[in-house]
C-alpha cells in the first residue's frame, strides 16, 4: 500500500480505495448489494403474485394516493443527489462540505420515513391491517422492508457523522462514508421499483 499510494502530496484522489482495507470494503459491499438485490426480488415476486388477493379488504387503487408517493419519490431522489455531492466533497478533501451534504441526506431520509409512517397509519385507518388480506401482508412486507432499510441507513450515516465529527477525512473513514453512500443509492434504486411496480401499477397498470 505504502508503495502504491503517495501520501506526501495530500489526500489521494480516491481516498475510499487508497488502502487494501478500503478496496476490500468496496468489493465486499458490492457483493452484499447483489445479495440484497436478490432478496428484494423475492419480496417483489411475492407481492406481484399476491397483489390481486385482496379478499374483502381494500384494494390498491382504493387507498394509494399519487401525490403522497410523488413527494416521497422526489425526497428520496434528491437525497441520492446530496449524497453524490457529499462523495465529491470527500474526494476533494472538503470535510465540512461533506458533513453538510451528508446531514442533508439524513434529513431528507428522515422526512421520507416520516411520510411512510404517516402513509401506513392512514392505510390502517382505511382498514388495511397486516393480516387483512394476502395483498396487505405482501404490501407491508415489501414496503416495510424498504422502510427498515431507510431507517438502518439513517442510523448508520448519523453514527458515522457523529463519530467522525472532528476527525477530518482520513483513509480509515473515507471507505466507510463511501460505502454508506452506495447503500443510500441502493435504497433509492429499490424505491424506483417500488413506486413503479407497487404504486403506479397498483393505480393504473
Amino acid at each position: 500500500m505504502a508503495e502504491t499510494t503517495d501520501l506526501s502530496k495530500g489526500l489521494p484522489s480516491h481516498p475510499e480505495r487508497a488502502t487494501l482495507e478500503g478496496k476490500n470494503k468496496f468489493l465486499g459491499f458490492w457483493v452484499f448489494l447483489a445479495g440484497e438485490t436478490t432478496m428484494f426480488a423475492t419480496f417483489f415476486g411475492t407481492y406481484l403474485g399476491l397483489r390481486n388477493g385482496t379478499g374483502s379488504g381494500p384494494e390498491a387503487a382504493d387507498i394509494f394516493s399519487l401525490p403522497l408517493v410523488f413527494i416521497m419519490t422526489m425526497i428520496l431522489l434528491t437525497s441520492s443527489l446530496t449524497s453524490v455531492f457529499a462523495m465529491f466533497a470527500m474526494k476533494k478533501n472538503q470535510f465540512k462540505k461533506m458533513k453538510a451534504w451528508m446531514w442533508v441526506t439524513v434529513a431528507l431520509g428522515a422526512a421520507f420515513l416520516g411520510f411512510e409512517i404517516y402513509e401506513f397509519v392512514e392505510y390502517v385507518h382505511y382498514g388495511l391491517g397486516f393480516t387483512t388480506s394476502a395483498f396487505a401482508s405482501s404490501f407491508y412486507a415489501l414496503v416495510g422492508l424498504h422502510g427498515a432499510h431507510v431507517l438502518f441507513g439513517l442510523l448508520w450515516i448519523s453514527l458515522l457523522l457523529i463519530r467522525y465529527r472532528n476527525s477530518g477525512i482520513t483513509l480509515t473513514n473515507a471507505p466507510k462514508f463511501y460505502v454508506s453512500s452506495l447503500y443510500w443509492h441502493f435504497i433509492d434504486v429499490v424505491w424506483i421499483f417500488i413506486f413503479t411496480v407497487v404504486y403506479l401499477m397498483g393505480i393504473g397498470g
Binding site: G10, L11, K91, K92, N93, F95, G168, I169, T170, T172
Partner: peptide, 15 residues
C-alpha cells in the same frame, strides 16, 4: 503507513 490511517490531510493530492 499504519499511523497515517487516522490522520486528516491538509490538502488534496489532486492535480
Amino acid at each position: 503507513m499504519g499511523e497515517n490511517l487516522s490522520q486528516p490531510f491538509e490538502k488534496s493530492a489532486m492535480t
